[in-house]
Design a protein around this nucleic acid. Sequence first.
DNA 1: GTCCTGATCCTCT
DNA 2: GAGGATCAGGACG
Length: 189
Amino acid sequence: MSLPRSFYERDTVAVARDLLGCLLIHQEKAGTAAGRIVEVEAYLRDDPAAHSYRGMTERNRAMFGPAGHAYVYRIYGLHTCVNVVTGAEGTGEAVLIRALEPVAGIGLMQARRGRDDLISLANGPGKLTEALGITIDLDGASLSCGPLWIDPPTTPVEEIVQTTRVGITKAADLPLRFYLKGSRYLSRR
DNA sequence: GTCCTGATCCTCT
DNA sequence: GAGGATCAGGACG
């Protein structure tokens, strides 16, 4: 059973923290692949680093849509990143999924990534979308009915570490990155 | 391990 | 026309 819409309609930082330990699952003809979320970042309203900061555009439209949907975008012309839209519709807040611990469909993930070591299969936002086969087609897709969804944790969730976000130049001092302490599958420490 | 670079392209200025 | 919420590979120590 996947997380209900009400899970995503809460405060974005609370959703970000609660997503840690959950399972991100993508199912398609090639098979099903899933990973345990070990690292996320929150992007808020009035946050200069957020894509929504300068208002709605064609690219970030999904970020202003209803909670519990995916916001998928392409970065640097060649990589894809996936977010979960949070909060009330129209606020433009979301949580970026940054790293996964491979759990299921590992052979499929290895084939898609073209490498075998489990650590680097999904330890980065561009890597995990490649490993799970998440493409720009899923931008705006519901996480309640479709090939992409999130399940609650199946094992105890470790201690959460809160720190600054990765790879941004604006609002770089805000502590809006969260990860599971001690995980070997982080994009960085 | 750290640092640097090239790849690659669409969006917004 | 500039600049990314990135990745991989190479040089170097």
